[in-house]
Amino acid sequence: GIDPFTGEAIAKFNFNGDTQVEMSFRKGERITLLRQVDENWYEGRIPGTSRQGIFPITYVDVIKRPL
């Protein structure tokens, strides 16, 4: 089901994660935001896939912030 505490964002740019914990994505992908890790990073996942990880806040347009 849908978790009411998650947020939502759209990727503004392609992001290629450097490490296992970073999640790569392509511009235009819809991302579920799980939490804000710190002032620069979100943790999120791509709905319908097993992809999950952290990524820079500046790479996405936030539609709804996670609670």
Rank of each mutant, 00 (worst) to 15 (best):
D38R: 08
G17W: 03
A11V: 02
I46A: 02
V37Q: 05
K12L: 14
I10H: 04
V62I: 10
D61M: 11
F25L: 06
M23P: 00
R35D: 04
R26W: 10
I31V: 05
I46S: 01
R65V: 14
T32F: 08
A11Q: 00
I46C: 03
P4R: 12
I46R: 01
M23S: 01
T49M: 03
F5Q: 15
I31R: 00
T32A: 09
S50P: 10
F55M: 02
T6A: 14
V60D: 00
E43I: 07
A9S: 04
I2Y: 13
P56A: 02
G1T: 13
K12G: 03
E39K: 09
L33P: 01
I54V: 09
V62G: 02
A9V: 07
V60E: 00
F15S: 01
I2E: 15
E43R: 04
R51E: 03
G53P: 01
A9K: 01
G53D: 01
D38G: 11
V62M: 08
L67Y: 07
E39R: 09
T58V: 12
R65C: 13
D38C: 09
W41I: 06
D61L: 13
E39Y: 08
G17T: 06
I10V: 12
F5N: 13
T49S: 09
K27E: 10
L67E: 14
E43T: 04
E43Y: 14
G17V: 04
N16L: 10
R65N: 12
Y59V: 07
T49A: 03
L33H: 05
A9Q: 02
E39M: 10
N14G: 06
W41A: 04
G53W: 01
G1H: 11
P66K: 02
D38M: 08
G7S: 09
D18Y: 14
D18K: 15
W41T: 10
N14K: 05
D18H: 15
L34A: 03
R30E: 06
Y42Q: 02
T19G: 13
T58L: 12
L34K: 03
V60W: 01
F5K: 11
T19E: 10
T19H: 11
R45L: 11
R26D: 09
I10S: 03
Y42L: 10
T19L: 10
I2A: 15
R51G: 01
F5M: 12
F25I: 07
A11R: 00
L67M: 15
V21C: 15
D3Y: 13
D38F: 08
T19Q: 10
Y59L: 10
G48T: 05
Q52Y: 09
V60R: 00
G28C: 08
A11M: 01
A11D: 00
W41C: 07
D18R: 15
K12V: 09
G53N: 01
E29W: 03
F25A: 02
T32V: 13
S50V: 10
L34N: 04
V62E: 04
F15Q: 01
E8H: 11
P4K: 14
R26I: 14
I31E: 00
N14C: 07
R45M: 14
I54M: 09
D3V: 13
S24H: 05
L33W: 02
E29S: 02
T32Y: 08
S50N: 15
F5G: 14
E8N: 07
I46T: 01
T6G: 10
P56S: 02
T19R: 14
F5C: 15
L33A: 03
E8T: 11
V60I: 08
E29D: 07
W41R: 07
A11P: 01
G44V: 01
E8Y: 14
E22H: 14
I54E: 02
I63M: 08
Q52T: 09
V21S: 12
P66A: 04
P56L: 06
F55E: 00
Q52F: 11
F13N: 09
F13H: 10
S24C: 07
T49R: 02
E39N: 09
G53Q: 01
V21L: 14
A9D: 01
K27C: 08
F5V: 10
I31P: 00
I31Q: 00
F25Y: 01
E29G: 01
T58G: 12
G1M: 13
R51W: 03
R45E: 07
L33C: 07
Q20P: 15
R30D: 03
F25T: 01
R26A: 11
R35G: 09
T58N: 11
T58W: 14
L33V: 10
M23F: 08
Y42P: 04
R35S: 08
L33E: 05
M23L: 15
N14F: 05
I46V: 10
G28W: 04
N16Q: 12
G48K: 05
G7V: 10
F55H: 00
F15I: 01
V62R: 05
W41H: 12
I2M: 14
E22Q: 13
G48I: 02
S50E: 14
K12T: 08
I57L: 09
W41F: 09
G17M: 04
R30L: 12
E8F: 12
S50G: 12
N14T: 10
F15Y: 13
L67K: 04
T6H: 15
K64D: 09
G53M: 01
I2D: 15
V62Q: 04
T49F: 02
A11T: 03
D61W: 14
D61I: 15
R65W: 15
G17F: 02
Q36V: 09
V37S: 03
V21P: 10
I31L: 06
R35V: 07
Q20H: 12
K12N: 07
M23Q: 01
Q20G: 11
P66R: 01
G7M: 11
G48F: 08
D38A: 08
K27N: 05
R35Y: 08
G28A: 03
I46N: 01
G7K: 09
G48N: 10
Y42A: 07
T32H: 09
F55R: 00
A11S: 05
D18F: 13
T58M: 13
S50A: 11
K64Q: 10
G28Y: 05
D18W: 11
V21D: 13
E39S: 10
A9G: 10
R26M: 13
G7T: 10
T6L: 13
F25G: 00
S24A: 07
S24W: 06
A11I: 02
P4S: 14
I54F: 10
N16F: 13
P66M: 04
V62D: 03
E29C: 03
Y42C: 07
D38Y: 09
S24Y: 04
L67R: 03
G53E: 00
P66Q: 05
T19S: 14
I31K: 00
G44R: 00
T6V: 14
S50F: 09
Q52C: 10
N14V: 05
I63S: 06
A11F: 03
N40M: 13
V62Y: 05
N40D: 12
T58S: 14
Q20W: 12
T19P: 06
I10G: 01
I57F: 06
P47C: 08
I63W: 06
N16V: 12
I57V: 12
E22L: 08
R51Y: 04
E43H: 09
P56D: 04
D18T: 15
F13W: 11
Q36W: 08
E8D: 10
Y59G: 03
R30M: 11
I57Q: 07
V21Y: 15
